[in-house]
């Protein structure tokens, strides 16, 4: 098993560092965002699996030649007070680290979920009081605010798309349709699940290049997917126009008309830029992608990426499960 643990460690390092850097610099994901999304998920899953697996089977090596055998022997030591003489300090250390990392990942996932859900519930409570149903589209509400904003709040059957009346005033009906289609794609394709998983992955391992790059990439890819879906129903110039109008804000950014809402200055969040660049795709990049469309990856290319993703998941699984794979 010792060789399998080295192979897993090597895989973990490749997936934590060079692989995500290369993928984040590649240009093809903009051509086939869906395929790229599969690859990012495979990198994250296989990365986590090989990290934990490497430590686990390295620590179990003195006990058995197989993972199940090692785990049985370990439980005999832990729960059955069996002799632990075979395990050195470093083996115990590796096993503890594997356990800690595994627990850490699962708990961060659950905690992130709880936090997101709490924020969504609060947001929905406030929306109930402050918004009114849109006359134009179902599942859509309008909120009274001068800044042009549109977003969707996922939540199963209670998912809702929110528009500000600042936005409704600025956009032509067709442009509004483009915005709605874009947002509804986020909901129907369940992008929030991806965002949740990758937000948790980043929260768990913030110092790892892969978790930061992956979250950034996923944020961009979902925007591309939503744009592509919207383009099936609206003209491209309409969507581009909508993006440009929302991005450039209301005509007079210091609109004095509203005397009410505290912090309603539509320009106030504009200043928070750069560092606040939260991974959402830069509008100019999005417009650029729409203006100079590249053909999607050929079928063979997409098949290769998907097959590679499957192999990426199969490799650590096989290293963990098949004894003697690395005995030569």
């Amino acid at each position: 098993m010792i060789w399998a643990s080295y192979a897993l460690a090597a895989l973990a390092i490749v997936l934590a560092w060079p692989a995500p850097i290369l993928l984040s610099r590649a240009r093809w994901p903009a051509r086939s965002p869906f395929t790229a999304m599969i690859l990012w998920q495979a990198i994250a899953l296989a990365g986590g699996l090989s990290m934990i697996g490497a430590m686990l089977i390295w620590g179990l090596d003195p006990l058995s030649d197989t993972l199940p055998g090692g785990l049985r022997a370990l439980s005999a030591i832990v729960f059955g007070n069996g002799p632990a003489g075979a395990l050195g300090v470093w083996h115990v250390f590796a096993l503890s680290a594997a356990l800690l990392l595994g627990t850490h990942l699962v708990f961060t996932l659950l905690l992130t979920y709880a936090r997101i859900r709490r924020q969504r519930r609060r947001h929905r409570d406030l929306l109930t009081l402050l918004s009114s149903p849109s006359p134009e589209a179902g599942g859509t509400v309008v909120i009274n605010h001068p800044a042009p904003v549109a977003y969707c709040l996922p939540g199963g059957a209670r998912s809702v798309t929110v528009l500000s009346d600042g936005l409704v005033d600025l956009l032509e009906p067709a442009e509004l349709d483009a915005v709605l289609l874009h947002e509804q794609t986020h909901l129907t394709q369940r992008h929030h699940l991806l965002l949740w998983a990758f937000a948790a992955w980043r929260a768990a391992l913030p110092w790892l290049p892969t978790s930061r790059l992956a979250q950034h990439a996923v944020n961009e890819l979902i925007e591309m997917l939503a744009d592509d879906e919207a383009l099936k129903s609206v003209e491209k110039p309409t969507l581009i126009h909508a993006i440009a109008i929302v991005a450039s804000g209301p005509p007079g950014a210091t609109d004095p008309g509203q005397d009410g809402p505290a912090g309603a200055d539509p320009g106030q969040y504009r200043a928070a830029d750069g560092a606040a660049g939260d991974g959402a795709m830069a509008p100019s990049a999005r417009v650029h992608r729409l203006l100079t469309p590249q053909p999607p990856l050929p079928h063979s290319g997409r098949t290769a990426v998907v097959a590679g993703s499957a192999a990426l998941l199969a490799l650590p699984t096989a290293l963990l499960m098949i004894p003697g794979l690395f005995i030569w």
Binding site: A150, P154, E183, H192, G249, R270, A280, A282, P283, S284
Partner: peptide
């Protein structure tokens, strides 16, 4: 986590970005 809580049509726009657009 904001992007995970709600998905906006457009992210935060910098001044330069707004001018370009």
């Amino acid at each position: 986590d904001r992007e995970a809580v709600l998905a906006r049509f457009l992210g935060t726009v910098s001044d330069g970005e707004a001018a370009t657009l």
